[in-house]
């Protein structure tokens, strides 16, 4: 069992707004605990509509920003609806200096309330949370990223920090669902869009051009994906068919975000059978071979 010492207070003075507890010896595997998170009151620096129902939110979060790893998320309390108690989890899109940004889609009442918030207002944020993507190694397999809709947001930091570039397959219903294509190109990645209505890029699901590409050449490649569950499942199937490793960021309904409520569990294969693991703590990124898409009878 790994023993781990925490020195939350030793971090630095610029995290004055972040709250941290004193050192304690934890007897638990770090994989079973929330990552090195802080809770802080963040200020909205910018908030703009990107396309249709997608918004880009930039927060001053000096405690969270320097700790962010690709694939991690922030858990935001949206105070404007006091009858809605729970925080909402968002992939951290970018982290620069003391700011983080979040690229989100309005999908319900919580995100609708968030979309009405203005620069200067404050949001209580908990983060960075979860275990994210393992960074590709310079001489490892070529990274292939696969994103559906706002899944692109979870992949940006991976694309930015990866020591090697590759291809990004991005899909959506229509043209307006294809996000941050220019940003990924600017990082030196090749972007291949697909839309279901054919209004942009290849017509069809994002996994269709991915399959064509893998049929052409699959050796020494690794898949990293974030998007709706049916897409992730299709990516897992392709990874298995082509014998490729794959890391998937699962988008699960969450409540506490820090491993205690056991809302966001996913069935995961273990040595002896299977168990529920928490998307917020052991995940949101899982090895595709581990994920069980249906509960065994």
């Amino acid at each position: 069992m790994l023993r781990l010492l925490l020195f939350c207070r030793g971090q630095s003075a610029r995290q004055a707004t972040a709250r941290a507890a004193p050192p304690l010896t934890l007897g638990v595997s770090p994989r079973m605990l929330p990552s090195t998170m802080v809770e802080e009151s963040t200020e909205i620096l910018a908030h703009e509509r990107v396309t249709e129902s997608y918004y880009l939110l930039t927060l001053r979060a000096p405690g969270i920003a320097p700790r962010v790893q690709p694939g991690q998320f922030a858990h935001l309390r949206i105070w404007s609806r006091p009858d809605a108690l729970l925080r909402r989890p968002f992939s951290i899109y970018q982290a620069r200096g003391d700011t983080i940004s979040i690229l989100y889609k309005v999908v319900g009442k919580g995100t609708a309330a968030l979309a009405r918030m203005q620069p200067g207002e404050r949001l209580d944020a908990l983060g960075p949370l979860g275990h994210g993507f393992a960074l590709p190694s310079p001489d490892g397999p070529e990274p292939i990223l696969v994103a559906g809709g706002y899944g692109m947001a979870a992949l940006y930091l991976l694309a930015e920090r990866s020591p090697r570039r590759g291809i990004v397959f991005v899909g959506g219903r229509r043209r307006t669902d294809i996000l941050c294509e220019a940003e990924f190109r600017a990082l030196g990645w090749e972007v291949r869009p697909a839309t279901e209505d054919g209004s942009y890029g290849v017509r069809g699901l994002v996994t269709e051009p991915l399959q064509v590409e893998l049929q052409r050449h699959a050796a020494h490649r690794k898949l990293y994906a974030c998007g709706p569950t049916p897409m992730l499942r299709a990516v897992a199937r392709l990874a298995e068919a082509f014998g490729l490793p794959a890391e998937l960021s699962l988008d699960e309904h969450m409540c506490c975000g820090m491993g205690v409520c056991l809302t966001c569990v996913v069935p995961v294969r273990t040595d002896g059978g299977w168990e529920y693991q928490r998307a917020c703590t052991e995940g949101p990124v899982f090895d595709a071979r581990q994920v069980l898409w249906e509960i065994p009878a």
């Binding site: 925490l6 939350c8 709250r19 941290a20 507890a21 004193p22 304690l24 934890l26 007897g27 638990v28 605990l33 929330p34 090195t36 998170m37 802080v38 809770e39 820090m258 491993g259 205690v260 703590t281």
Partner: peptide
């Protein structure tokens, strides 16, 4: 949880 999950946020 079992307390340990909160140990990073507050002094139990």
């Amino acid at each position: 949880g079992y307390g340990v999950e909160y140990a990073r946020l507050l002094d139990l």
